[in-house]
Amino acid sequence: MLGTFEYFVDQTINGLTLGSIYALIAIGYTLVYGIIGMINFAHGEIFMIGAFHALIAFLVLGLIGITWIPLAILIVLIATMVLTSIYGWTLERVAYRPLRGSPRLAALITAIGMSIFLQNYVQLLQGARNKPMQQLFSGGIELMREGDYVVTLSYLQIFIFLLTITLMTVLTLIIHRTSLGRSQRACEQDRGMAALLGVNVDRTISLTFVMGAALAAVAGLIFLMNYGVIDFYIGFLAGIKAFTAAVLGGIGSVPGAMLGGFLIGLIEAYWSGYFTVEYKDVAAFSILVLVLIFRPTGLLGSPDIEKV
């Protein structure tokens, strides 16, 4: 079984599902790093808050009596994205904006502090135990079969892939076709010059955080639907791995973050499928180290020329 092609396909599907989550979070890291050059360490917690928003929204809808699943998912998706992106906005406004122009280390420490704060905030409000949620829809398409071993692509996974691809397309269009995207690219190249030419830098940075948080919220929703269990601590590991993905793809590059996310997801799935589950996190971190040693700019990143 372990050596068959079917097993490989199965792991690939798992890896791509996981990769969708990492890719959506990684985009938030890359957008923020591109525009203000800081690691938004609390981004993983935004993802966690998104997952909690999604769970609570599902429960509230269930209480109200909206049980038609497509409608429920649509409402939850919108509510989660809106509410979580306001967390992203507030995070930037309260914790990062006062520190713009301070030493980089100060921003990093603030981000770590915010991460600790948000984790404990959710733990206090919602309790420390993990929260299970039942599967919303089951079933799937049978792709191939080898004896007893059946490879299925579940409807949930199809939904996840479609959702991820749609969001990535929309994001790419925003960045390349709208005035907001133009401002973002301008700020990324030279913030001071952009401000001189009439770009509202503060607003652009705020909206960048909002976009990143909205995508992380969707990742949270996907995580909740796919794994069915969340707790207040999921943001830490997911955040680190998504950051790894962003670095792997080349930090600052949006297509790089998407590619990196899927790659990390695949590596993790193959590693747990073919080697040991215990060391799958070690695998992800080793990849990070190897990439940084041999190609510090990542796969799609542009080289960072150092001026003296």
């Binding site: 609570i56 929204a57 509230v60 509410l83 306001i86 309790g127 949620m133 039942q134």
Partner: peptide, 23 residues
């Protein structure tokens, strides 16, 4: 903004009950 921050996170608490979650 405060309302948006708190609407679901503070306003609703997930409670564990036997057989699932309650709010």
């Amino acid at each position: 903004v405060m309302l948006a921050l708190m609407a679901l996170m503070v306003g609703v608490r997930i409670a564990d009950v036997p057989g699932g979650l309650e709010i």
